[in-house]
Amino acid sequence: MRVSTTVNGTPHVADDVWEGESLLYLLRERFALFGSKNACEQGECGSCSVYLDGTLVCACLVLGGQANGREIVTIEGLDGAKVQQAFVVAGAVQCGFCTPGLVVAAHDLLNRVPNPTDAQIREALAGNICRCTGYAKIIDAVRLAAGSA
């Protein structure tokens, strides 16, 4: 089947899509946007976090066809320089596989809550698993991004 969607402001079309392909697969393998990561493909790690019509979702849990006509924003198209910079400066990036998803999720949090408490940061990022950092520097990064607003 064909899937037409807007990704990062640009129309994207994929043909001969197998009906079982996820939005994550479309983004990565058909649109070559590899920033959304394929760590668990079951919604348990947040590494593929994207915006779907402005809502934070796991791209692995959106069926490709469901993205038809929708607006997707991925890490590649995020106005996330502030958050991205904060992650780098705070030392919140190690292997980095979780980082794009965390950046998108932190961006979403800061859009809604510009100055989150630590407890709010933790609850908002609970769906993003990081195996390297132990999270301390991720919390630092979100605080830093909030402070540099």
């Binding site: 590899f34 959304s36 991205q84 980095g96 950046v103």
Partner: peptide
């Protein structure tokens, strides 16, 4: 700061 940090945070790595 790690040299690959920015690329990882942008999703380009």
């Amino acid at each position: 700061l790690r040299p690959d940090g920015p690329a990882k945070a942008r999703g380009d790595f």
